[in-house]
Design a protein around this nucleic acid. Structure first.
Lengths: 197, 197
DNA sequence: TGCCCGTGTGGCACCGAGTGTCAATCAGGC
DNA sequence: GCCTGATTGACACTCGGTGCCACACGGGCA
């Protein structure tokens, strides 16, 4: 089923991958902001205009998957029995998503992300979109009144979980990838929820 | 002491205020993204080029104070005795900042902020700057080892507090300002720290 | 009063991101 | 071999933002 739907879609996927490859190489080599779209396009052998038919913005090259990963997280979350309490369920769902690619590359990309304001902003924006996807399920787990739109509980819990993931990433980058990301996340959540503060 | 340091600075402040006034009127009237900088400049009676000598970006007209408010929050936090535990101290410090302007205007601005991606992104970016300012003091309150850069506790707590403020604002806007913002914040933090989840 | 200096100002050219339009191209079905 | 529809490249345009330069104006000084 995956990749035999005609030459069109296949070549489109190929171009897509090629742009990503070329762009990432340029980004890591000379920096995100220093790389212009014209440069990416000409290096990838397409026109400037065509580039924008594959990616809406330059940031999307780096963060394109993030929104889809939100859907993955939602599916993962919905697959976890409702008897599992919110925090544990969120932790399981988020981990299922975040760990896939090569650690070394991931560190480089993360460094770039945390060091480039426009990228950081977009990534946070996309993480916010996760919130919408995950909140309904957490409401169920909380047994909250689904009609009460002014109950901040589920939103707060989801947003905090995502924030902890972000903080963990920050510390991870700061420590040059020496710490374990999962462990950092666990400690972040623990310290937020620790009663002794 | 405030405003008698010569004609230059006084007139500069006047122009600054005038731009803000004019721009806000246009924003609330026809939307943020639909308002162009040329329009703001010509309405305020200055050149396009001069506009950029007062504001680095269009977003800064709306969010200009936010970074300064971070410093205010830091000062407020540092004025609270170290014996007060982190969460309470953060709550007090953040409240001292956020409640000042007219509620009706604030609601309009908040609606615009949560409804305009680029504004939302920038506001998050600026809130991140708050983090850097508040973390050191929270580390003190936690009695954390100041040399241990890989301890995520203080960062997580500060980030979560700010996130809860953000979530509260979101719900507040969603409910058209009917709820009490402070109350929403309190409930957000409570639900995050509630042990029964 | 007349001069100089520093700062704010406007105008201009320029860059990069992103969009609308249109004609040419090319794969695939008939 | 031809028609159709999606893809492409080229061009022009908008908008946000920056660098540069010449000019005007306020304030201090002789």
């Amino acid at each position: 089923m995956p990749d035999d739907d005609g030459l069109w879609k296949r070549s489109r996927r190929a171009v897509y991958a090629e742009i990503t490859r070329v762009a990432m190489e340029l980004f890591l080599d000379q920096g995100f902001e220093e790389t212009t779209i014209d440069q990416i396009a000409s290096t990838a052998g397409i026109s400037r205009r065509s580039f924008f038919r594959y990616f809406g913005t330059k940031e999307d090259i780096v963060l394109g998957d993030l929104v889809d990963q939100g859907s993955l997280a939602r599916e993962a979350l919905e697959a976890i029995p409702l008897s599992v309490p919110p925090w544990q369920a969120l932790q399981d769902a988020l981990w299922q998503v975040d760990q896939r690619t090569d650690q070394a590359v991931m560190l480089e990309v993360a460094k770039m992300m945390y060091g480039t304001p426009s990228l950081r902003a977009r990534s946070i924006e996309k993480h916010l979109r996760w919130q919408e996807q995950l909140v309904p399920n957490i409401r169920l787990r909380l047994g909250a009144d689904p009609g009460d739109a002014s109950d901040p509980a589920a939103d707060a819990i989801v947003a905090t979980a995502i924030t902890c993931l972000d903080v963990a990433g920050q510390i991870w980058v700061r420590g040059d990838g020496k710490d374990d990301l999962k462990e950092l996340y666990r400690r972040a959540v623990d310290s937020v929820r620790s009663p002794g503060t």
